[in-house]
Design a protein around this nucleic acid. Structure first.
Lengths: 330, 330
DNA sequence: GCAATTTGTGCAAACGTTTGTATCTTTGTC
DNA sequence: GACAAAGATACAAACGTTTGCACAAATTGC
């Protein structure tokens, strides 16, 4: 591996000048800069980033910590952030916590010890507050939180507009002619689900309708099945589900009962999981705009934005499961 | 940030002894080791890994390069590898190429410049050979390839037993009583798909059956739909698909034609994508055992295994779409 | 009890870069 | 032509660790 010292020797100058030349310092004469660049290219020089990081006290790496990388949402966030950061000359170090608190702590330590220049984070379910983050990162390393955020922590935050999204999804069901609309609301320990529930209620209230049924539970197919049957018994003709998996379970349970979707019953899910487009009937879903969130988080870091909260609108994807009036094909 | 020098001063010894104590060198007296450890804990010392990496010439990071992290297969491989490597005290740096050659080159450079102690790699589609890998990594950084491998490159390789898997899937269809079995074979530029086609043919041959139809095309829902209709017209009663997405398309097309699955027609897909369990009928699929591959790749790296090829068996997951005789519920 | 060995520490030089300060060279001004 | 200012480069120290070698003290063998 060739070093700047070798380049300096080859040119009869000193390593410091070579360093400055390669880093675009205005303190070196254009002609020597060119000579250095030429020689560096010739000798196949590449900066030893480890040495550089040691000297500078930080690296050009941004750490991204997510609960799981195999979730459409998180991998898309990473994709969006990576693109913006790469364009800015930064690399990305991805860590997954598998929803575990101790893994989150470990990841934060690893990142800090590698002197990353920033951390983009969505918390593990097991994390109940942000004290560990503050403790580990200190105030040296900028933090950007997204989706699952703790408001007590400093730094930028990027979140979905869950209220607006759920409002739009519910309004869509109303416009399709459904009248007794229930919801599968998710667990209320997460801010996002609370806001979705509120958006649902607000849309109904604005249309002078009453919530027909509210099921507060985890968002998995089984709870969806059960809730759907109860909703049916209670006379519901539509459901807004705060998750796609529970919506899937609901559809399966209803189909087994011979309920026609969307003619007799409308359903909208949330998250736009990849399977929603593949089902039959395909599932209308409130998409999270994950790439936008990733991009926004990366930009917030690059801009050094402190403490601001960026709210990303959600997008309603209308497919068969709620398209009673056949607005268009999807 | 506290340094070993500060610990040394606090104890009236030298940094070198502190370093040796913390690294478990046998050259330090147990009593001083304990004193150092106690003081380090008290002062909240954590090793500056950047400095350590510079001095040692390498880091405790293993790079993993995959085409995309949002594929069930790749994220599971990463998960498996991560677990094994973390237990060995190594961190993981994940890069995605989005199937692009230049991104693969960039990723390799980043990893080498960060002095990773090894690279675990599955190639981008755009990569036609492995010369760039050899050139960038040299013979200093060990390489482990998985799934998409170039045999000309040195180092360990971990692959699926595609032949065995496709053989088992086809045999299963035969055992279920299907007789005119076709296949959706995938594109033949990939070794994996070639082997699956061969496994399919071998199973038929061993049962004295003829291939009823072979569709060589990309593995997406649309080609699956089309192929299924042609297969139906040709009198097929079953299909082995080298991908789940094309199997999904096939099922949808057949259902629209009123064909009952699995009574009239059996289908087995490949990859065990998450949606296969969610469909109705649920899709039997040949699972790739991604975690096993990840674990095997990590172990191959840790063992310093050179040049060996590890073949991981595939696992047939029987669900409704091929379960004509109702062997068991799934 | 002396030499030979083992055991435990210290010393100092790396690893390759960056950067504050000093030094040297050029240019411009009167 | 002298002097100041600016422009360009050199010097040297630092970043925090690791590690070969030297050295002292403690242990062993005869």
């Amino acid at each position: 591996m060739v070093t700047i010292t070798e380049i300096a020797e080859a040119l009869g100058i000193t390593p410091s000048t070579v360093s400055r030349a390669l880093n675009g310092s205005p303190r070196v004469k254009p002609s020597t800069r060119e000579a250095v660049e030429k020689m560096a290219a010739e000798m196949g020089y590449e900066r030893n980033v480890v040495a550089s990081n040691l000297r500078r006290g930080r690296s050009d790496i941004v750490g991204i910590i997510v609960p799981r990388i195999n979730r459409e949402f998180f991998s898309s966030v990473i994709g969006g952030a990576e693109k913006v950061l790469n364009e800015a000359g930064l690399s990305v170090l991805i860590c997954q916590t598998l929803e575990r608190f101790d893994a989150e702590v470990r990841a934060l330590r690893t990142l800090r010890n590698n002197r990353v220049s920033g951390v983009i984070l969505s918390h593990a379910i097991e994390s109940r507050d942000g004290s560990h983050v503050a403790e580990i990162l200190g105030d040296q390393i900028p933090l950007v939180q997204f989706d699952r955020v703790f408001s007590e922590l400093p730094g930028a935050k990027v979140v979905n507009d869950n209220f607006q999204g759920a409002y739009a999804a519910t309004k869509h069901l109303i416009e399709q002619g459904y009248r007794r609309i229930g919801t599968l609301a998710g667990y209320m320990t997460s801010e996002a689900y609370v806001q979705r529930l509120e958006g649902y209620r607000a849309a109904l209230a604005d249309a002078s309708l009453e919530p027909a049924a509210e099921f507060v539970d985890t968002i998995i197919p089984e709870t969806g099945r059960e809730a759907a049957l109860q909703a049916l018994a209670a006379g519901c003709d539509a459901l807004y589900s705060a998750g796609d998996f529970s919506a899937l379970g609901a559809i399966q349970a209803l189909q087994e009962k011979g309920v026609r979707i969307p003619e007799d019953f409308g359903i909208v899910g949330t998250a736009n999981e990849s399977f929603t487009a593949l089902m039959s009937p395909s599932l209308s879903s409130l998409a999270l705009k994950a790439s936008d969130i990733g991009r926004a988080a990366a930009r917030a870091f690059l801009d050094g934005a402190s403490d601001g909260e960026t709210v990303i609108p959600m997008e309603l994807i209308i497919r068969q499961s709620s398209n009673k009036n056949n607005l268009w094909q999807k």
